[in-house]
């Protein structure tokens, strides 16, 4: 059977590309002007044009939360945001929350609770948690779980993420017991004792 399948673009019009124009973004308290066309997402603007690669791309389609940044204090997915329309807003990325040698309380809590493994979802988780705290709506474990569900973690660090967020949310006054670690010490080897 021979049938032809043509992988064809939807628009039949001749290809055309809108030229780049100057766009000014306020990121982590500083204005940056870059040359981009309207088709550049806020995520790509940060990563590819401003070299702020702390914000991650896990899907580019709003399905994972790795690209979470704060805009005027609210968490959003930067992959579905067109950079041009975010001019004049205060954009905060993971780099703006704290630095490697000067971690924010949330960043420190993530380290303390081992709330990550590969670290790729982590900046998004932390920005999201910061957004959650800014919202001031969540207090309980169930609430935090639900409201941290916009951030996938393929490594499965969820219980530790919960502990870290709860700690900072409650200024260190809440310890979440969502999984105990017990170590049973070494016993003699059973190697040859085939009872």
């Amino acid at each position: 059977m021979s049938q032809t399948f043509i992988q064809e673009p939807l628009d039949k019009a001749a290809p055309h590309v809108v030229p780049a124009q100057a766009v000014t973004l306020n990121v982590n308290g500083e204005d940056h002007t870059i040359q981009i066309a309207p088709w550049t997402s806020l995520l790509d603007a940060l990563r590819e044009y401003l070299n702020l690669t702390g914000t991650k791309k896990g899907c580019d389609h709003g399905q994972c939360g790795a690209c979470t940044v704060l805009v005027d204090g609210k968490r959003i997915n930067s992959c579905l945001a067109l950079a041009t329309v975010y001019q004049g807003k205060k954009i905060q990325t993971i780099e703006g929350l704290g630095a490697e040698d000067n971690l924010s309380p949330l960043q420190q809590a993530f380290v303390d609770h081992d709330a990550f493994q590969c670290g790729y979802c982590t900046p998004g988780q932390i920005c999201s948690a910061q957004g959650l705290i800014n919202e001031g709506r969540c207090k309980t474990e169930d609430e935090v779980r639900e409201h941290m569900s916009g951030n996938l973690c393929r490594c499965g660090a969820y219980t530790n993420i919960l502990s870290a967020v709860m700690e900072v949310l409650h200024d260190g006054n809440v310890v979440v017991d969502n999984g105990v670690l017990i170590t049973i010490p070494v016993a003699p080897t059973k190697a040859s004792s085939a009872e």
């Binding site: 709003g62 399905q63 169930d142 969502n178 999984g179 105990v180 670690l181 049973i184």
Partner: peptide, 25 residues
């Protein structure tokens, strides 16, 4: 895609206790 290939979200995960029974080997 990540929207329809489902992996757990935070709300799916509850209490998980981990025990290490150490071995001398």
């Amino acid at each position: 895609n990540y929207a329809e290939y489902h992996i757990p979200v935070n709300a799916d995960i509850h209490k998980i206790d981990v025990i290490f029974v150490e071995e001398q080997d």
